[in-house]
């Protein structure tokens, strides 16, 4: 929206809005450096809770399980989700098409409790022991739908004649996909993977239903320890997680902005050369 002034009202609502979004996390970060076990009383700066966290094997094990599950499920979800996006955007008519697209979109709006319950009952019905594998299967299923949405939004705007040109010039369909299509949809595939990874890292409800005793993920561990109240170790853990995400998102946005600028420069240069 252009035109109109950026008024004091706009400035106030932005300031208050972002304060609301960020203050709670800021407070959490500050109190993670609190000496006292009482979370609400400030007793001086200390990093002792980070030390205790690093000695807590239960948390480290859970973190490792979470990363493993996240890596495998997001990788599988990226492959399956990209395929699904291709089917939805490109494959035209086939039997069961509307069922297929329904199944691709349904998990996006499905409450996690229902998905979790359904998958658990399914795993029990087929006699699959609950563990890392079942969490990976569960996460892959709902994350592939998110990947498919991200990738198909890129595929829709994709100029098909590029692919056709490659085919006309003698590429096999697979080569055309690898050397033309993939580089163009790569940013969407990468953001799909990142989204799937984040969703998996973040998921409590579905993981609680589908995990076994030996496969506690970090969110399950966090949830069971904060149910009883605030704990300084969890504050420290949260701070680490917030830090990683912040660095990641800021880097990603700088990289993508640079690319955009470079692309614009290239286009400008091409125009001037003509």
């Amino acid at each position: 929206m252009n035109g109109g002034r950026f008024s004091w009202f706009n400035a106030t609502s932005l300031t208050l809005g972002f304060a609301f979004l960020y203050l709670p996390m800021l407070i959490l970060v500050i109190y993670s450096f609190n000496e006292s076990r009482l979370v609400t009383v400030w007793a001086g700066f200390s990093t002792k809770w980070y030390g205790e966290l690093l000695q807590n094997d239960a948390f480290l094990d859970a973190a490792w399980v979470t990363l493993k599950v996240g890596f495998w499920s997001s990788t599988l979800a990226t492959v399956l989700g990209t395929m699904a996006a291709y089917v939805v955007v490109r494959s035209g008519r086939f039997t069961g098409r509307s069922l297929f697209s329904g199944m691709v979109y349904a998990p996006l709006v499905m409450p996690e409790v229902i998905t979790g319950l359904a998958l658990l009952l399914f795993f029990i019905a087929i006699g699959l022991d609950r563990g890392v594998l079942t969490i990976v299967l569960a996460h892959t299923t709902f994350a592939m739908c998110y990947v498919s949405v991200v990738v198909s939004s890129r595929l829709v705007t994709f100029d098909r004649s590029l692919e056709e040109a490659a085919l006309d010039l003698g590429s096999t369909p697979f080569d055309a996909f690898r050397s033309v299509t993939l580089p163009i949809i790569a940013p969407a595939v990468i953001s799909g993977w990142l989204l799937a990874f984040t969703l998996s890292l973040d998921d409590l409800v579905i993981a609680s239903f589908t995990s076994g005793p030996s496969s506690t993920t970090l969110p399950i561990k966090i949830f069971s320890s904060v149910r009883l109240g605030v704990s300084p170790e969890i504050n420290a853990l949260s701070t680490i997680m917030i830090g990683i995400v912040t660095v990641g998102v800021i880097t990603a946005s700088i990289v993508s902005r640079r690319r955009l600028v470079r692309q614009r420069d290239d286009e400008q240069r091409a125009l001037h050369q003509e």
Partner: peptide, 19 residues
């Protein structure tokens, strides 16, 4: 700035309010 919280753990953002 709007998207950043979305990438941060949901559980942690809820937990922050407990304190």
């Amino acid at each position: 700035l709007v998207i950043l919280p979305f990438w941060t753990s949901f559980l942690i953002r809820v937990y922050a309010w407990m304190g």
